[in-house]
Nucleic acid binder design. Structure first.
Lengths: 216, 216, 216, 216
DNA sequence: AATGAATGAGAATTCATTCAT
DNA sequence: AATGAATGAATTCTCATTCAT
């Protein structure tokens, strides 16, 4: 028995029903262990959630930062960042959703810490957009809105992407990069020949198999 | 005492903490009445949520359908629909968020009914995108993804729009319409002189004043 | 609207589900009035029960006492008393059952008063049995047990007697008188030509129509 | 901690106040445990009642059936059955009372099942009476009424029998058998030398000590 | 490492009752 | 006379958590 199994069960149920609506007994049952045993792996239900969220956000920041280091060109950075974001979200749809939706149930201290991580992650997008505009590679009526739209759009992938769906992950990533470029009026030809797509990490907390709700 | 007050309290708390994490006592206290009195206005906590969601989705469908009736031109329809979507979301951020997030806590029967309404609403976007592509007004690598991105983007407005913020609602709506056109490579000049922006309805369930979380 | 209707509704529901399991709203609905209106007729749910019980026990004592006054002969007294008991129980099965079963839910003061009435009623049987034995008309191994058996037996009529059943009330009364005589080894020939059967009173609290449970 | 203790507390309180008037907290307090712990032993308040009733009725059927197997003589069967009935009722007055009184609070499914058991038990009496009459050993004006009177009478023992009372259990059983024979005009001499009295089973659910209400 | 038993706190909901209309 | 609105107290049951084994 390892903590990954418990985390997977937790993520599955938290994504499906929400943290508050998921009982610790239900969680144990889903992981195949007694509910009391969960307390050998974690201090409390909230701490279990925090661990999952922290790992998720840490990885998002790491892969996002890595994307930015690929090049100094804003357009290539944008492509790599959007691609990493979409890739991660598609590879870890349930964990990503839980990390987004369940922020609100945390106690103030934990929420503050997690929100800080998310803000750090979002600032990666803000940096790229801002520099791209500054150097004249991007153009938009409102940089803030463009950034928010970009992120929201990519996050939405968690709601519908299926590994066995109509499109491969690479195709999805590619399309999103194209849309991002359109929104920011970036010159897509700059991406020719550049491999900005990197395979996403699969978190230990991400349950295998089909997601929570039916596809669109 | 009227049900609007209860609904506003419910939406505020459901948006802030989630349905499952909100107690009926807390709800009563927030509405200024005894928790037992809530049961004069509604049959159960879930029914209260369903009423709010149904009103919200009904209005979304109504205003979306009205937008489509404004013109036969796909580009104008797109603009009107996106504008209505963003407007409604900005005018009713908490109610809209609750209607989206809390679908999962519903019992099967209610969830089915609410999901049907949401699907109806989403199909409005699908119709416009599909027809715009068919007649050659829009161009995209993947219509489905484009539609999902469009919607997700607009819904995100609920997370950050403030009536007293940097931008007026009209500006926000305008910018989103522009981004939508970019994503679909629609000819924005077709919108010149067309007033596709209509003032959104304010639902009785939408609590007045500032939203749940701090701005980005 | 009169109190009889409320009492009938109360007796019907109390007999069917018990006093504690019957709500005041349910009671109002069954009587066709608002639950608050019940408080125009009675001070509380318990008081409503007490009124019904008191009327019932008063009438039992009255008809039992009248039976004893019919004759000075123990055997005739026994016949009249058993006949009155069975007759009353058959005519008011639900009220009689409520008066018996629901004694325990009363608050101490009311219970004491009602128990006193029931004791008074039971003492009528004790008197007859004791005198019959003293003067040599009755014979039994244990007078107390015989008396208890007599009463219990007759009370059981409430469980199965139906006005439209196989036997007329007179026949039932007659048969019970015969069984009583057998138990006490009384000389049944003494009853020849004596009309010891009197028509029972129908209480206002007794609901019309068929009783609570199906017949045996 | 064992379930017997909980059952005893339940039977005591159910008999004293009724099922509906007994709270789960009160029940826990009476058993010396937290109310939540009760749900370790049983699924619900009703299930607790059902378990008690089923055990009681099963044992009644078992001991009644055993009584009938003692002999082929209707008179001896009657004596054994009445003796078993009275013995069981005297040994388990509270459980027997609860099994009888609280049938009505059960949900339809459970009530049906329990009523079936009671009907099975009552049919034992019907069989004996009917056969006794058919072979000419018994005589009565109405077999059905005689049977009902017999049972009702014996059940009444629960209301007054005390182990430390004026009469031993054997004496009570003997007297009831005599009364039963009188009612059915059975030849009591057939019982001479036959030991039709067997010691009753004491159920785990029967609380020790003095019963609910004061003696007559 | 794992669990069954146990519990105090809290959940949603219903209760009998009051009162202004 | 009758009622809809309102409520404090109580209901059954579930909760996350602890602990001895």
């Amino acid at each position: 028995m390892n903590i990954g199994k418990v985390q997977q069960a937790a993520v599955l149920l938290f994504a499906r029903q929400g943290f508050a609506a998921t009982g610790i007994r239900e969680l144990g049952a889903s992981a195949g262990i007694n509910s009391a045993t969960i307390y050998h792996y974690t201090g409390s239900k909230e701490e279990l959630l925090v661990q999952v969220m922290r790992t998720c956000l840490d990885e998002m920041i790491a892969s996002g930062s890595a994307a930015l280091r690929l090049s100094a060109e804003p357009t290539i950075q944008l492509a790599a960042l959007v691609s990493a974001h979409v890739g991660f979200t598609a590879a870890n749809p349930l964990t990503a959703r839980v990390a987004e939706y369940e922020m609100r149930v945390l106690s103030p201290l934990n929420r503050e810490a997690m929100q800080k991580l998310r803000d750090d992650y979002e600032s990666l997008f803000a940096q790229v957009v801002e520099r791209g505009i500054r150097v004249g590679d991007f153009s938009t009526e409102d940089p803030t809105m463009a950034r928010l739209a970009l992120m929201e759009m990519g996050t939405g992938v968690a709601h519908w992407y299926r590994p066995d769906g109509r499109l491969t992950l690479s195709e999805v990533q590619h399309n999103f990069v194209m849309m991002a470029c359109k929104i920011l009026s970036a010159d897509r030809s700059m991406l020719a020949g550049i491999n900005f797509i990197h395979p996403p990490v699969q978190l230990a907390s991400e349950p295998p198999g089909v997601p929570v709700v039916s596809a669109h």
